[in-house]
Structures are given as structure tokens and as C-alpha cells.
Design a protein around this nucleic acid. Structure first.
Length: 139
DNA sequence: GCCAACGTTGGC
DNA sequence: GCCAACGTTGGC
């Protein structure tokens, strides 16, 4: 089991929209970046991820589960691009803000901090645990 | 709205 | 294959 982080601008695709999809979930499509795509190729069914709102909110707002492994992105004919499907698992009790993450020395190596522009990122199990605690998610 | 960081493109 | 120019992302 591995952990990930999915970044989205709430004006493009928000946590509320993801939740509204329910267990059917949704393609994490539109990724046009090789690094981000490569992360998705590594994902396995049942892996968990944080749902992060960039731009105005800048906070981890929910937890998602991978429900389909990498497959062609239906929004393009270009076969280079693949994506996974994810569904909302639960909201975090308290959104964990970027400021909080940055101020916690235990999280200083998070990709979210070090490579701000990568939209799909790996999260270590240690980081996962800490952010869950900060978010009031008891597992 | 600005700008730094970074990825991509294209000329050579 | 290198690198300058350009475009995009995202934090502030």
C-alpha cells in the first residue's frame, strides 16, 4: 500500500465535486506532465491519497482511494497520457493547510513543499500519518 | 498581479 | 544534444 497526493484547483475540480461522484469515482484526467503521469502508473488498486486544493485554499481537504489503475486519458487522443480513477473516501475533520505543513519540521521533505508544481505526488507513510493526525483523521 | 521555479519547445 | 525562449503553475 502506497500513499499519494492529488492536487487540484478548486475552480477546476473541487473536493465537493469529487464527493458528489460517490463510489463511482472519477478519472483524474487532464494531467499533461510526465512526472505526474509516472506517479499514476505506479499506483495500485486500494492505494490512498490526499486531495489537495491549490490556489486560494492551499490545504489537504480529503482522502481518496485509487479504484482503477492507469489507463488512457479519455480527454485526449494522445496516447502518451494516462490517468487513474479515484473516489472520495472521507473528508478530513480539519483541513491541513500548506502553512501548517511548512511549519512542521517533520514534513519539511514533503514533495508538496519541495516541488510545489508537481500535481501528483508520492507521500511517505510517515508523512501520511502526520498529516492525518493534523487533519483529525483517526484512520 | 507578480514572480520564481520548472517543464517544454524548437533552433542550431 | 544543448540551451535559450517561452508557457504554465502556484505561492505570496
Amino acid at each position: 500500500m502506497r500513499y499519494w497526493l492529488f492536487k487540484s484547483e478548486p475552480s477546476t475540480w473541487s473536493w465537493n465535486q469529487q464527493v458528489a461522484k460517490g463510489d463511482a469515482g472519477e478519472e483524474w484526467d487532464g494531467v499533461r506532465n510526465y512526472q505526474a503521469r509516472n506517479q499514476m502508473r505506479e499506483m495500485k488498486l486500494g492505494d490512498l491519497g490526499f486531495f489537495y486544493h491549490s490556489q486560494s485554499e492551499k490545504a489537504v481537504v480529503g482522502i481518496v482511494e485509487v479504484i482503477a489503475e492507469a489507463h488512457p486519458d479519455s480527454t485526449t487522443e494522445d496516447e502518451r497520457w494516462e490517468c487513474v480513477d479515484i473516489k472520495a473516501v472521507r473528508s478530513v475533520s480539519t483541513p491541513v493547510t500548506l502553512a501548517q505543513i511548512k511549519s512542521d519540521p517533520r514534513l519539511s521533505d514533503m514533495v508538496l513543499v519541495k516541488n510545489t508544481r508537481l500535481s501528483v505526488q508520492p507521500v511517505t507513510s510517515e508523512e501520511w500519518k502526520i498529516v492525518c493526525e493534523l487533519g483529525g483523521v483517526t484512520g
